[in-house]
Structures are given as C-alpha cells and as structure tokens.
Write a protein that binds this DNA or RNA. Structure first.
Lengths: 240, 240
DNA sequence: TTAAAATTGTGTCCTCGATACACATTACAC
DNA sequence: GTGTAATGTGTATCGAGGACACAATTTTAA
C-alpha cells in the first residue's frame, strides 16, 4: 500500500488524506460568427438545475494531470491536436456540493471548422462568452480567470491561430483579436503590429466569395503553431 | 458518503478516484547579503538522500487549498503576513516515489529581518538560488517555474517590497531587482523607471552607518503592500 | 588637513513601439 | 458605369526605455 514518508506526512493516516478528489476543467474556446465561444454542458446536478458548466472530469489514478484535459477534449470533441494551457487550481472546501474536489483549470483553443470536430452529446453546446452570466459550481470564476489569461497571452504569443482555419485574411484575424480582447482596434496599426511580429506568411492568394473587395490570405509561419502538448510540459522535459 | 453525480463521474467507483493525495509546495524567497535565497529542508526520503526539497504539506480534508500554503509558511517560519502567489500544479504520475501526489506550487516573499521569523527545525535553511543544482522530487522544476514567474511579475507589480525592510534606499532596491532578474541595471534608468511607477514615498531620511555617502530612504506607498492573502482569491471574492 | 576613493544624484539624446489619423484602390451590386 | 464597401498603405506624434557623463557628498587614509 501507498506510504508517504516525508516528515510532514508520516504521522497522518491514509484515510484522512486520500479523500480529496482531483479533477480538471476545460475552458474550450472557439471562434464562430465573429464571436468568441465556449463549450458548455448542461449541469445534471439538482443544485444547479438549468445552469451550464465547463467540461471536466476526475483525473484517473494512472493518468498524468496534464493528460486529463487532453482526454476530456478528445472525449468531448474528437480533437487531439489542440492548444492547452494550465491556468489555475481551485480548491475551496465547498466549491463542489457533492464533496471535496479540487480542480485544475485549463483553457484550450479549438478550430471549430476542423473536420474532426464532433460533438455527440446533445447537452453540450457552444455559448457566446459575452452572454454568460452564471455557471454551475465556481465555473464562472474559472471562465473569467481563463479568459483573462487568454487576453494577457494573446498579443505576446502566436496562439490565436488555433482558432482560425489554415488560411485567413488580416481582417478575420483582427475580428478575432477584437472578440477576444473585447475592444476595437485601428486597422492600420493592427496590421503594422502583426506584420512586425513576423508570425505570418503572405500566401499570395486572395479571399473568395466575399461580398466586397477580397483581401490577401495569410497563414501562420511554420514552426510557430503550438498544439497537442502543454508547452510547460515540454519545457519541463527539456529542463530535466 | 460522498457521491459525485456528474455524467462523467457517476460510473466510477469511489475507491478508484480518491487515491490521489493533494499537496502544496512553497518556494519561500528571501533576500540576504545581496542574494536571493530560498528556504529548503533536508529530504528524509531514501530516494533523495542528501538532497533538499521545498517546504510543503498535504492539504487537509477541511482546509481550503489556498489556506494550505499559508499554514505551511506559518508552521515553518512563524510568519503570517506573507505574500503568496499560486504558480502551477504539477501532477505527473511518478513525480513522488511513494505514491500518487499532485502538488500546487506557490511562491512567497518573506522579509528575513522580521522579528517574527523563527525557524526551529535544524534541517531547514536558506540557500542561494544561484547555487542550487538539484532538488528532491521535481522540486528543481518547481523552483525554476516559480522564479520565472517572480521575474515576470516583478516589474509590473509592487511585490518585491515584501523582501525588504520598511525603509530602504534606491541602491538596496536596485540590488534586489538585480538579484531577482539575474542581470545588471543602469542606475539612472532604474531610478527613473521606479520613480515613474509612483510606488515609493520619499521619507526625507538618510541611510546611516554606511561607509560612503548616505542615500535617501524610501518606503512603499501605503495601500500597495499585498500580503496575508492570495491576490487571486481577493479578486475572486470581488468578482462574485 | 587634505586628497583620494566610493557612492549618490541628476539630464539629454536616441531608438523603438504604439497611436492617431486620411486617402487612393479594388471588387461587387445595382 | 456609378455607388458602395471594403482593402491597402504612410506620416507625424507621443511615451517608455536605453545609452551615456559629470557634479556633489561622505568616509577613509595619508
């Protein structure tokens, strides 16, 4: 049987301490119709009748913590190459009405146009970020925390491209940034800033089927896409 | 007994899931002799003979996650008004040789000149950050992650003052920043930047007992000191 | 007492990134 | 072919940050 031996631990009984469940919750962002969306599931707890909650699950006994959100993503959406980032761990005693559960929150960015995206559960659906007032558990706080972290990262790291198709125009990209940041941006200055970051490759192709003058298409420079693995996990493995 | 009811959970037995222990680990920084230090304890695990580890403990069944690091701090140092920040949660299966333990890492900033600071355990001692090569468990990675987060926060948020006495000169402050960031700074530019942030109050007092021209003394503007509570916790309570 | 050494305290120039802002061009719709 | 709506581009300005030099103050040592 498991036996912990550190000084602080040895005097405490097994029963006392192995009664906290560990879960992960995923804030799964996507981008549709010029709006930032999040994937939610109808709560089946009486306490939260009619409310939605984030997608999450308990961490398996033989599962690395950071594998759990990938599994949740895969089970719920069929997607494997997603961008995931750990944000914060929430562990107040009463955060879950059914018992003691601490949860580690991740946000992920998925391309809703991916051919592999498949949502089978009828209780699972996309919701406009701006429209969400309440969620089950402490999930509104988790959502807000993850959105804030996304906003902080988005100008420094080329991660939002996980929300877009392979090819996109600068206008589409700007619309996305505006949806995430919740503010309007000057077109000329935005273009300068983005171009200066050297993230993009000009494809020398044009938009098609748009009801106005078509814009040039770009893609993310190869080597910059981060997905399918937690960056911090990679960094750790390199550091060992 | 505890019964989880979400769809993903109900089919799984209690026994399977309540066997992950939850701990916290604290990277306790202080500043002495112009060096950034961290508080470590001699590991008593055979696997890590001769190595040091961070101070941590399991989270109690009736204890909020965020209370645990405050308790560890208090038990180990006697300090209550400390600055604490959650950094990351580490949960690889094999990170602890004795069993499955996930741990949430916090860093804290303590003033080593505080009259309340009291370290009773002979196995607990301060170590120069720069001298640390290996630690027990995955604690070196945790330390590096926390140091990196400290470095990222330090120019934007007035937190380093938790490492200094009430009154300090700009030279002392600059030495501290250099120790944290691991690089040298131009004195004139540093002073401009710090003064521009409007964090400091000129006390109209001078250093004493220094073997050179004394510098002016400053203190942190009142209202800016953050300690005794996790800032994220405070933000959450405001957000509810 | 005087001179040297060490450290404090201050200002200017330059660069770079970000912002405010206006006009010509292209393609579609009618 | 004319109007409409979007794309595509350049300049002037502002502010933060970095490079950089010299005068003033205090201790220490001769």
């Amino acid at each position: 049987m498991l036996k912990l031996k550190t000084a602080a631990v040895e005097k405490i009984s097994h029963q006392d301490y192995f009664n906290i469940a560990v879960s992960v919750d995923c804030v799964i962002f996507s981008y549709q119709n010029k709006s930032l969306k999040v994937l939610l599931i109808k709560s089946d707890l009486e306490d939260f009748q009619g409310l939605y909650s984030l997608l999450g699950d308990l961490v398996g006994p033989e599962e690395d913590l950071e594998d759990a959100p990938y599994r949740v993503l895969y089970e719920r959406t069929g997607l494997q190459d997603v961008y995931l980032e750990q944000v914060h761990t929430f562990g107040n005693i009463n955060r879950h009405p059914s018992g003691r559960v601490i949860t580690t929150a991740y946000f992920s960015l998925v391309n809703c146009k991916s051919s592999k995206l498949q949502i089978s559960d009828n209780d699972v659906s996309w919701h406009n970020i701006a429209d969400i007032r309440r969620l089950a558990f402490d999930h509104k706080i988790i959502l807000d925390t993850c959105l804030q972290q996304l906003q902080e990262r988005v100008m420094e790291h080329p991660i939002v491209f996980n929300l877009l198709p392979e090819k996109f125009s600068l206008r589409e990209l700007q619309d996305l940034y505006e949806a995430i940041l919740g503010l309007g941006l000057d077109r000329r200055n935005f273009r300068k800033r983005i171009i200066a970051k050297d993230w993009l490759v000009d494809l020398n192709e044009m938009e098609e089927d748009v009801p106005h003058r078509p814009g040039k298409l770009y893609k993310l420079r190869s080597g910059l896409r981060k997905s399918g693995r937690l960056s911090i996990q990679v960094e750790q493995k390199l550091a060992v």
